[in-house]
Design a protein around this nucleic acid. Structure first.
Lengths: 214, 214
DNA sequence: TAGAAAAGTTTCCTATAGGAAACTTTTGGG
DNA sequence: CCCAAAAGTTTCCTATAGGAAACTTTTCTA
């Protein structure tokens, strides 16, 4: 459709100009998610014109139009402006349509061993409750493969707080400002995750741990 | 700032001199959020090299480097690849940068069976990490004594979100807007706690559960 | 309806994102 | 130490995002 329009336009301008503009033909950049449609729906839901949305977001009217029609993939900076200007709920933008937020009476059950796997040399993560987006907590189980502090490049540290519970095996929890602590099944710890921390297995078997992070 | 960069580029083309990159100093593009640092932290947390991350995400090594060093603002498409490739939790990326951990480099370890007890007719709670105040999450283990829905006066509901993991035994999770779910050791659930919920033991033994609530 | 104003789209251009490869820095041997 | 390999950074280039303005379409209003 837009392709036809494009051709007509070209012919009309006619003549020599062949500038050619790549993009129109292939058109619809296959954006992984229908960001544009969502933005449009949200804007219309608020009864805003492109001009008003432009004022609110600081993005050009034309840019908004192109985003809504999925002619471009906005930069992170642009998305941020959209989000702040229009008060969009983030996870909504990213979630592949069907995914549900953790609020408003939602739940997700993860049966043993059915989480989303994420292996690294030292840990093997199994993310839980991945069907829910926008969660305040991130729960996952981990098999601790590492056997020595040296297997880590450096302390692990990240935003937020962390709770851990030893599900099986024996571990040693190293934390930046404390003495290492030996823990076994049933023991738990809670700490500020911006403080460097690292966990290694000390028993015969690789230990299993449940983590919950904010 | 970017204007400077542009000028330099122009000059370089025009002449021969090619003095070094503008941005080096504290120049740091003022990206609304510290996307780059977060991405880097996440990558390092998984002990991945740029090359490996490149494979996982489909983004070029150089692009990743520039994103991490906040030299560019990735497109939405690129952010999506990052998120999917590295298993990043979205809100993490957008959440207001500064958020300081309430516990400021502290930790508390609770050895098995040493939590603070808090019995009720239907549950028996063992609060964990009680040495730390002002936590964002509240972890506790519970022995589920109740055997039928009727032993509860009403749905349990409260603010926030809740994660639960079955440590032992068998339970049935009733939630207001869903069918009851039977769960056993290793299964977990995540739900909006303002939705009515109740758990009963269905096995021979009283079940043990770990809860974490925001 | 016609005509104008508002809303939306497209063009055209500059600035910049993303990729390939060159280059630099860091890590390990020996 | 020195060299080699690996990790990370920068350069250089092309494709494309974003803005201003021209253009088209829709919506009123008389």
């Amino acid at each position: 459709m837009s392709e036809q329009a494009h051709f007509l336009r070209k012919e009309k301008e006619a003549v020599i100009i062949q500038r050619k503009k790549t993009q129109s033909g292939a058109g619809a950049a296959m954006e992984p998610l229908q960001l544009g449609k969502r933005v449009k729906a949200i804007r219309l839901g608020k009864s805003l014109t492109l001009e008003e949305a432009s004022q609110l977001t600081g993005l050009a009217r034309s840019t908004l139009s192109k985003i809504e029609n999925e002619q471009i993939s906005p930069t992170f900076a642009a998305v941020t402006k959209l989000v702040n200007g229009l008060g969009i709920d983030i996870p909504q933008l990213f979630s592949p349509a069907g995914r549900k937020g953790a609020t408003g009476g939602r739940r997700d059950i993860t049966l043993k061993g059915t989480g989303t796997l994420h292996p690294t040399p030292t840990y093997e993560h199994e993310l839980l409750a991945t069907e829910l987006s926008g969660k305040k907590m991130i729960p996952y189980k981990t098999t601790i493969c590492a056997r020595s502090f040296e297997e880590y490049q450096d302390w692990i540290r990240h935003e937020g707080e962390e709770f851990m519970l030893v599900l099986s095996g024996k571990v040693r929890l190293y934390t930046e400002f404390y003495q290492p602590a030996d823990m076994e099944e049933g023991d738990s710890a809670y700490y500020d995750a911006s403080m460097g921390h690292v966990v290694i297995s000390t028993g015969k078997e690789d230990a299993r741990i449940l983590w919950v992070t904010t």
